[in-house]
Design a protein around this nucleic acid. Structure first.
Lengths: 229, 229, 229, 229
DNA sequence: CATGAATGAGCTTTCATTCAT
DNA sequence: CATGAATGAAAGCTCATTCAT
């Protein structure tokens, strides 16, 4: 009770209420959303320790106090950032419209999607790295994290099965490994772009470089799963 | 700064110097090394911002002041940590004894080395992630970073050439891409082990899981480079 | 402030009012009383600074805002807590049914009452200590504080006079001093129970210890006032 | 190690070192002492919560940071304030030069000492009240607290024994209770002077009022312990 | 060569209170 | 009548760094 809105107020809970939101509630929603968006940017840019509460509240054009009002603590905010990040990735994956009858083309589409998503959402990657630096301790405190288990593996599983039936894919391939292969290659390329660039002496983020890399991993994945690549 | 002693001298350089160190110098050397080792652990564990000067000096059983004495600043210390980390990786790669006459076996050996090295030196990965979070700004200030450009690509290049000559490898494969493929798969698996474990609901660090993953990427790499895999 | 409702009306005053309260008013009354009760507990437990508005509103299962609605400010609430505390002490004293014809027994009864009241209402003591820490600045702002000047001294005065008339008490004894003597011994024992316990290495709050102390001060007071103790 | 001087540096430890203190060390000692003195005043005046770190460091003409440097935390500082307060009380008690052959006069002297000490050191009282508000939780964390168990009870015990032998004191009197009686009356009078003044409508701190009170409790104590008062 | 002392900016968080329905 | 949202000051504490031997 008291000042705090039953601690971290869940967006879901509020949406569930039938009552049409008034001006005040909508303004509050905006404040909350602004903070969440700002926090995503700031944490992605500076990490957890480097992402100060002040940086976030300033960027959200709000006040430090509001972060505690809506999210309870810096950690609570970070957890919601992670949840939101997972949820957006999930939503994007669900929008993939794949034709099971065309497993090869669909697999290529998945690869294209992953490479594009990582390249356009590098904050996804830095947030994940930050969370891994903290040994997953924040996400393990999240109750919603499980809900957002990626549908990607299931999708790939279906594609593989379809390909096997059509005698274009090999039968003994693990969908999880194919998923990890695609994720790893897409992830690493973006995650380490700064040290790799210094290291290789070339810019990895030009459209050509990206296209080249995507082509390479497409060929690699296909050679791994196809009977006659 | 003015009176900095052995400041810009790497451990290698120092060992190479013919002059036998006196007791005084050795004690100083020990303090310096202790700090460097402690800093590596602390930065790897907590990141750059999270790795406070006090945590480091405590872990090194020394004093804050000594860090400034030997490394000038926290940033200077972090740069030396990165350099040291690259140097150690380099040294390890140089110890790989590969038979160019056996390109397939040698390539497997390279994969085995990478997976093992990452798995046994996860601090290598968190330090690199930290540096990438900072967009490579520290390593770009290092003068020695270039010296330690990994010999891995050159090695793979030779293996690929040998394999092509022996008609076991395809001709149009980029050594850089093969290197990135190996690095990416090895790196991602370790780097994201905490979020992946939460995500997949399984422990990725058991010997069996690691062996399985190594087998998978070995097969993937070989299918990518071999003529008749 | 402007719209403050039942603001400066004590519980007693309200109960005395003939008009039956409606449901609305009763609900409001409940909220107000809940806050007052919660505030008494919280201020007694944590002091004035330590007793935050949030702690109180949470404990009252109400909202911060309600404290300002009913009491104007934290200080206003604290003043009402003090007034309420004095009033309750007064009410309890007035319930003492003493026989002036039996001055010795009655004096013993007064002592018993004081020791029991302090021991059962330690919050009375911590609130008084808190107010004394603030040099009485809150109670001096209260308009009702004077109304509640303890009847105890007057009672003791009557007992002493009766005892003198009956030739059992000495004639030159100050009722004020006897009151202070009783209050001091009862108060100190409870007020300092934590530091005394640490100090003396024994629990002062066991029934035996309390009874022993009460016996001692009874004997002390009687020896002070009686002609032939 | 690191910056902190092996956490809260004990004054004793430093004094134990044979080495004559240099200018630096002496300056440090001064800083530490200034903080301790300032903290005693501030905590006594504003309580624990009300006594902010900034108030203390300002009053000590030092910096917030120094409090953490020397005392580890606000709580650590408060504990040392309590210890110091007990120690000073102890030292003062030890300076009492009592003649066991004159038990009545000596007991009067003890009462005079207590009343005077409390009246001249009201901070002793507010600090104790503050600590009792916190249920003795700080003093129970102190390792030195036990060392300072007041010699007062032992002194009174000896006086009582001497008086019994000389047939002026009653035999069945508990030294502890006499001590508590003297402490309670002296303490209460000072501790509650603000609320009592408002209550009784007179100033309790005039020399006359104090002398009157001291005379009263002297008579009370003597009537309690003497055979023929 | 080493190190205790000092420094001020910055950190996350809590405070009492007011705004706007 | 009631309350969620907003506010800025201040709290305790940690930060990287410099001073002064």
């Amino acid at each position: 009770m008291a000042t705090k809105p039953t601690s971290p107020r869940s967006a879901t809970a509020r949406l569930a209420s039938a009552k049409r939101p008034g001006v005040r509630e909508q303004a509050a929603q905006t404040t909350r959303d602004n903070i969440l968006r700002a926090a995503t940017k700031v944490f992605a840019r500076y990490g957890y320790e480097g992402g100060s509460v002040e940086k976030i509240s300033l960027s959200a054009k709000s006040f430090d106090r509001m972060i505690y009002y809506y999210f309870g603590s810096k950690e609570g905010l970070f957890i919601e950032v992670l949840e939101d990040m997972y949820r957006r990735m999930n939503d994007a994956e669900l929008e993939l419209d794949l034709d099971l009858e065309q497993p090869v083309e669909s697999l290529k589409e998945v690869i294209r999607f992953v490479v594009t998503y990582y390249s356009k959402n590098p904050e996804f990657i830095t947030l994940l790295n930050t969370e891994n630096l903290h040994r997953g301790k924040h996400i393990s405190k999240s109750m919603r994290a499980r809900e957002y288990s990626s549908p990607a593996i299931a999708i790939i599983q279906k594609l593989l099965e379809s390909g096997v039936k059509k005698k274009v894919f090999r039968a003994d391939i693990s969908a999880r490994n194919v998923y990890l292969l695609i994720a790893a290659t897409g992830y690493f390329y973006i995650s380490n772009r700064h040290t790799l660039s210094a290291f290789l002496g070339e810019d990895l983020q030009t459209p050509e470089a990206l296209a080249d890399w995507q082509a390479f991993i497409t060929s690699t994945v296909l050679r791994t799963v196809m009977l006659n690549p």
